[in-house]
């Protein structure tokens, strides 16, 4: 009985995670400019990773594999957003102005090159 419940929960989690990845992908294609697109990509990085990995962990139960999965999830959660941040920063440095920005910088101190 418990296994059935676990399976159902993990299936649901995996399905939702898959949906998130799909949405991120579609976002990446349809959104107009660079900054909006990396916003959509970051969705895949964070939300989908969390959901899929928890789903997989439930599938594999208490074993060495679960521990490995947890480590990978932690790694991805750490590096994903940092990578997106670095990407956005580098874009800004190389002078790609976000849409609708009328010249004055609204961001914090670290946008000066």
């Amino acid at each position: 009985m418990i296994e059935l419940a676990l399976d159902v929960v993990s299936w649901v989690l995996l399905a939702v995670g898959g949906a998130c990845v799909l949405i991120g992908g579609i976002g990446g294609l349809r959104l107009p400019n660079f900054y909006t697109r990396i916003h959509a990509a970051s969705l895949t990085d964070t939300m989908a990773t969390l959901l899929i990995f928890v789903g997989m962990m439930l599938q594999s139960g208490l074993s060495l594999a679960t521990l490995k999965l947890f480590a990978i999830m932690l790694f991805l959660l750490l590096t994903g957003p940092t990578a997106t941040y670095a990407l956005a920063n580098a874009a800004l440095l190389s002078g790609l102005k976000p849409e609708g920005d009328t010249g004055q910088s609204k961001h914090g101190e670290n946008t000066q090159p």
Partner: peptide, 18 residues
């Protein structure tokens, strides 16, 4: 390098040993 960018450095310092 990304010298004056705090966040990547912090995450980097955390990750490189691992």
């Amino acid at each position: 390098g990304l010298r004056h960018h705090l966040i990547p450095q912090v995450v980097g310092r955390l990750l490189v040993p691992f």
